[in-house]
């Protein structure tokens, strides 16, 4: 990489899932099952959303959260979102939520062999 050229990746979206502590593994597995854990990171967080308003029932909702975010291509977006939504049981009250943000561009290391294949592909398509 002596020419210091940066190749950007476009059409990338950032998918973020907020779930109760210890559910992060299930999210990662679901994402892995549909081939999407590129750039996955997880962090711990504390949630303050609906717990206080639920009264005693709020005790069933952990304040400690796992937050998992990962890069996905815009083509993958809906497949991955569906899969994670189901695997993390986000249709259950108090379970958590998922969102997708479009990213303008992403840059990282792209192997030379991959780059060559991409160039070839680009040339053949148009």
């Amino acid at each position: 990489m002596s020419d210091r050229k940066i190749t950007y990746l476009t059409d990338v979206e950032l998918l973020t899932v907020v779930v109760q502590r210890d559910q992060g593994e299930a999210v990662l597995k679901a994402a892995r099952d549909v081939g999407a854990t590129t750039g996955a990171i997880g962090y711990y967080a504390k949630g303050f959303g609906v717990r206080e308003r639920l009264g005693l029932l709020g005790l069933a909702v952990e304040t400690e959260k796992d937050v998992i975010s990962m890069l996905i291509s815009s083509e993958q977006r809906d497949v991955v979102l569906d899969q994670i939504y189901r695997a993390a049981k986000l249709d259950t009250p108090g379970m958590g939520y998922i969102y997708v943000t479009p990213l303008e561009k992403v840059a990282t290391y792209i192997p030379d062999s991959l780059m060559a294949r991409l160039d070839k592909h680009e040339a053949s398509v148009g």
Binding site: V50, E52, R53, L54, G55, L57, L59, A60, V61, K89, T92, P93, G94, M95
Partner: peptide
């Protein structure tokens, strides 16, 4: 914020994983 009231079904689904 007004307290959230859950239906019996929602309560059950909230408590089940817990």
């Amino acid at each position: 914020a007004p307290p959230v009231r859950l239906t019996a079904d929602e309560t059950f689904r909230l408590l089940r994983p817990y």
